[in-house]
Structure formats: C-alpha cells, structure tokens
Write a protein that binds this DNA or RNA. Structure first.
Length: 155
DNA sequence: GCCACGCTATCTG
DNA sequence: CAGATAGCGTGGC
C-alpha cells in the first residue's frame, strides 16, 4: 500500500498532504492544487467544518528527540487557543529558540498545530506566509471547526 | 563541524 | 525605547 498524496483548498492556498491510514508524513502549503485524496479530518478542517485532528498521527511526533517532544506538546494545545514559544519550551524542558526551530521545520503543519504557537510579543513567524497562520487562528477562534462532531454543546 | 534559524530574558545606554 | 548578548537543538552545507 503506497503513501497517498492529495490536496484540498484553503483560501488562496492548497494544502498538500502525504499520508497513509491515520499517519501523516508531510503537509505543505502551495498555490497549486493536485489531484488525490486527503484525510477526512483535514478536509473538514479546511472547509471550516467540525474536525477532530486528534484522529490523525504525525510522523513528527514519533521518537524521543527533543523535537518530537515539542511536537507532542504542541498537539495538546486546545483548538482556538494559543501558547507562546516560551511556554511550550517550559512544557518540554527546553529553550524557546529550540521551539522556534522545531516549528520552522515542522513537517506536518495543521496536524501538529504550529500556528497555535505565537511569539511572546506578537505573532511569531510562519512559512510560506504569515497570512495562513492568521487565517487559521481566526477560523479556530470563530469556533465552528472546534465544535465536537456529534452535535453537541456548541457553546 | 559550522551555521542559520518562526525566541526571550536581561542588561546597557 | 533601541541594541547587544547569551542560550537551544536540528537540518543543510
């Protein structure tokens, strides 16, 4: 069974995903879309519909390296909330700068929600475009995507 | 090996 | 308030 690749639309961008079953190998943003499937949770997320990204795993969180620990900590940030690089660093017992480096090299944004990690003063960075980070945070703060799927509380 | 990073606390004018 | 300085962990060269 080969690794699947596909993309879905997110505003002006396309989210490319390389994955297999519940394991995501690589996510990246591009101006161009490609044909192929993406995991249901990501599809829903990009559409701004209720999505549970915790059903997916990322290769980035495998292992006991410092980066893997950082990625696991970042995955625990609740949808709609943010943490600073420094807070994440203290969570895993490392330095803020290491967190910045880990985010910059995050192979699976969205699955590992690096957009929820912001600088102490301001936004911090995001590649390829800070605009994506702002859009994702705005969407999560709006709340729809965070709503549990089984028609629940919904504030 | 060395170096550039999506940072931050602290110190110095 | 602006600039310098030190400290982290990795991938790339």
């Amino acid at each position: 069974m080969a690794i699947l690749t596909g993309s879905c639309r997110l505003g002006l961008w396309h989210v490319h995903v390389a994955w297999q079953d519940d394991l995501v190998y690589r996510v990246r943003f591009s101006r161009e879309g490609i044909a192929g499937p993406v995991p249901d949770a990501i599809l829903r997320y990009c559409a701004g519909r209720p999505a549970d990204l915790s059903t997916l795993r990322s290769v980035a969180t495998e292992g006991e390296t410092t980066f893997a620990k950082i990625y696991r900590a970042v995955r625990e940030i609740p949808c709609g909330e943010t943490r600073t690089y420094g807070e994440v660093a203290r969570m895993v017992g490392t330095a803020p700068r290491a967190v910045g480096a880990a985010m910059a090299r995050n192979p699976t944004p969205i699955v590992v929600p690096c957009h929820r990690v912001v600088a102490k003063t301001g936004m911090g960075g995001f590649s390829p475009d800070i605009e994506i980070k702002e859009a994702l945070l705005a969407m999560e703060r709006r709340g729809d995507v965070c709503t549990p799927e089984k028609g629940g509380v919904n504030r």
